[in-house]
């Protein structure tokens, strides 16, 4: 990650220098500032500066060398903790169907949505509490 930081800061310096050259050159050639190009180049420098700053902060905060920066690391050393994911579930599909009914109601006639909204509520509650009840309750 250290090298990412350096690359993005180098890009920032490049864009800022090129922006100055571009602004000077267009003023010398046409007598006025060319806004579109000047803004694009200088703000590209701002963009890479932000990304580099973010990487720098992450690099300092993580408390170690990233596996990607080590020769002896394995690929799965870099896996983050991704939390709990359901292996399979009907709830997202049911929820999509309920949302479909609500959208049809909004397009065709709003009375249809009154049938979809309670079902949508059931779908949300069912999805949120899927692993809080029954066999797999936490």
């Amino acid at each position: 990650m250290k090298s990412n930081v350096v690359i993005f800061y180098l890009l920032t310096a490049f864009f800022l220098i090129m922006g100055c050259i571009y602004i000077g050159w267009t003023i010398a050639a046409t007598g006025q500032l060319e806004w579109a190009g000047a803004l694009t180049i200088v703000l590209s420098g701002a963009l890479t500066g932000f990304v580099g700053f973010y990487f720098d902060r992450v690099n300092r905060a993580q408390g170690g060398i990233m596996p990607a920066d080590r020769v002896d690391a394995d690929i799965d050393d870099g896996d983050p903790e991704i939390g709990q994911f359901s292996p399979w579930s009907w709830w997202p599909m049911f929820m999509a169907a309920c949302l479909g009914v609500v959208i049809v109601g909004a397009c065709v006639g709003f009375w249809i949505a009154f049938f979809g909204l309670p079902l949508l509520l059931i779908a949300i509650v069912g999805w949120v509490y899927e692993y809080y009840r029954g066999n797999f309750a936490r």
Binding site: A61, E81, I82
Partner: peptide, 13 residues
């Protein structure tokens, strides 16, 4: 021993 130290990653959620 683990080859790399535990990293402080941002929570994906």
């Amino acid at each position: 021993k683990a080859t790399t130290p535990t990293l402080n990653r941002p929570n994906t959620v």
